[in-house]
């Protein structure tokens, strides 16, 4: 599982983004984190080649939410053979936008003195959930009513053993805010909101049946295509 931060933010474990075989000896493992409101691309670079590596730089292809490096990739060079280094690259969302498939896909180019290497990775959309995403209750009710039923997506999360308060607390660590809670016929219904960096708001209803490990998440958003990615974040946050 991932590493829980003090604020409760879920950080997925690093995965292999660039195998050394494809990077002429450069291996990159990475993940994404949101720390104090800043999206970070966190990478472990390993030099598995027989010569030193210098002159690192990074560039993103245009992507769904305009993610872009907020500064240069800082690698203390040279990176000697067998040396491993952790680097953290702050991102902003001021870059060029192009809808990707899947929506959270990011195409990356990393350059060093040997060559330019390309890889794709996917970021949890929760990296884009802003700290002030708690919607006013009246606005929530009006928006919920206003978004057409066709825009509602429903998913199930199995094998979840938290009660609704624990679930609410965990999600709040990822900037998913509970606005209201009601209990109807033994089901806790949590009404929650989140806001993405580009202003898109997502409204959800999380149903937790006492004694049942299966949750039901219903998502309403004017941009319905984000629902699948948001659901993935619910699942990751609640199961880790």
């Amino acid at each position: 599982g991932g590493v829980g931060m003090p604020m409760g933010t879920f950080v997925p474990p690093k995965t292999l983004w660039l195998p050394a075989m494809k990077g002429k000896g450069l291996e990159i493992m990475g993940t994404f984190a949101r720390r104090a409101g800043v999206i970070q691309m966190e990478m472990t670079l390993t030099n598995k080649a027989m010569s030193v590596m210098t002159d690192f730089a990074i560039q993103f292809n245009r992507n769904s939410f305009g993610l872009a490096p907020a500064g240069p990739l800082q690698v203390p060079t040279p990176l000697s053979p067998n040396q491993t280094i952790d680097v953290s690259l702050p991102l902003n969302n001021g870059g060029p936008v192009m809808k990707m498939e899947p929506l959270n896909n990011l195409q990356v180019a990393v350059k060093n003195n040997i060559d330019v290497f390309y890889f794709s990775c996917q970021y949890p959309i929760s990296m884009l959930f802003v700290e002030d995403g708690k919607m006013d209750r009246q606005v929530f009710l009006a928006t919920w009513k206003d978004i057409p039923n066709e825009n509602e997506a429903q998913f199930q999360i199995n094998d979840c053993h938290l009660n609704s308060d624990a679930a609410s607390n965990k999600l709040q660590g990822s900037n998913v805010f509970t606005i209201a809670k009601r209990t109807v016929e033994g089901q806790d219904m949590l009404y929650q909101s989140m806001k993405l960096t580009n202003g898109i708001c997502v409204l959800t209803e999380l149903r937790v049946q006492t004694g049942s490990p299966t949750y039901t998440v219903s998502l309403k958003c004017r941009a319905a295509e984000v629902s699948q990615c948001v659901f993935q974040c619910y699942e990751a946050a609640l199961k880790n």
Partner: peptide
């Protein structure tokens, strides 16, 4: 009064979702 109204509105929403 507004707050009471909102409390009531959420209760109605939850009720309507459980028993459509």
């Amino acid at each position: 009064e507004l707050e009471d109204g909102l409390d009531e509105a959420f209760s109605r929403l939850a009720e309507s979702r459980t028993n459509p």
